[in-house]
Amino acid sequence: MSGTIRLLIADDHPIVRDGFRGVFASEPGFAVLGEAGNGAEAVAMAKALGPDVVLMDLRMPVMGGVEAIRELARAGVPARVLVLTTYDTEGDVRPAIEAGATGYLLKDTGREDLVRAVRAAARGEAVLAPAVATRLMSQVRTPQEALSDREVEILKLVADGATNREAAKRLFLSEATVKTHLLHIYAKLGVNDRAAAVAAGFRRGILSVEGR
């Protein structure tokens, strides 16, 4: 794209927003239109100001970054969203990209790399931090094992709030067998607890809001 790249900065820490503003204030070809302290503010400001690129933190009060990205997409806001966060786990990266983020960088990204990344994002190019790209490539090269029918049954019961004992009773299994299945589920989904397993189940389409 040509001309000035208009930016909106969304982060709940004023000092971080000041830092990003300082970076782009001294670079030619950029204009910071505004700053938002949470995702809801970012959505409202993006609708009103029409930025080319939104620098979006992920974990913010009121509305997080992923939800804000979804809201921008639903509203038809054409701004590119470049995530800037300290988190690079699959549970953070994949939802942001699936929601529509153009890029995903970590906050330790160098100044020059950040400026280049924003220019690339403004052109619609995908931008990924090296650590994030490596993680995603690893996932592609190592397909995750699918859950068995029994494991899906147990995950659905867990999503509905069932304890191990309740799941065992419903499925006519021993509680120890349910625990074993849960361990297999955790391993296949790459998580460590029940809440993360349920979240991964929804994210991967194993669970659905309608029928779970």
Rank of each mutant, 00 (worst) to 15 (best):
M1A: 01
S2A: 10
G3V: 08
T4K: 13
L8S: 00
L8W: 09
I9V: 04
I9D: 01
A10I: 12
D12F: 13
P14K: 02
P14I: 04
I15P: 03
V16G: 02
R17V: 03
R17H: 02
D18L: 12
D18R: 13
G19S: 06
F20T: 03
V23S: 01
F24T: 02
S26E: 13
P28L: 06
P28E: 14
V32N: 05
V32H: 01
V32K: 06
E35R: 04
A36T: 11
A36H: 12
G37S: 11
G39F: 07
A40K: 10
A40L: 08
E41N: 08
A44E: 15
P51V: 00
D52W: 04
D52R: 02
V53Q: 03
L58A: 03
L58F: 07
R59E: 14
P61M: 08
P61K: 09
V62R: 15
M63N: 04
G65K: 08
V66L: 03
V66M: 02
E67Q: 15
A68W: 13
A68D: 10
A68C: 09
R70W: 12
R74Q: 14
V77K: 06
P78K: 09
V83R: 05
L84I: 13
L84E: 03
T85L: 09
D88S: 14
T89C: 06
T89H: 15
D92L: 00
D92P: 04
D92W: 12
D92F: 15
V93Y: 08
R94Y: 09
P95W: 13
A96T: 13
I97V: 14
A99R: 15
G100A: 05
A101K: 07
G103Y: 10
Y104D: 02
Y104T: 06
L105N: 04
K107H: 01
K107A: 02
T109H: 05
G110D: 01
G110M: 00
L114D: 02
L114V: 05
L114Y: 00
V115E: 02
R116F: 00
V118K: 00
A120V: 01
V127K: 01
P130N: 02
A131P: 04
A131C: 06
A131E: 13
V132C: 03
A133W: 10
T142R: 15
S148Y: 11
R150E: 12
R150T: 12
R150G: 10
E151L: 11
I154W: 08
L157M: 12
L157H: 11
R165W: 07
E166A: 09
A167W: 11
K169D: 15
R170S: 09
L171A: 05
S174I: 11
T180P: 02
H181F: 12
H181Y: 13
H181N: 12
L182P: 00
L183E: 11
A187S: 11
N192I: 12
N192K: 15
R194C: 00
A197L: 06
V198P: 11
A199P: 01
A200W: 07
G201C: 04
G201M: 07
G205C: 04
V209A: 14
E210W: 04
E210M: 02
G211R: 11
R212F: 08
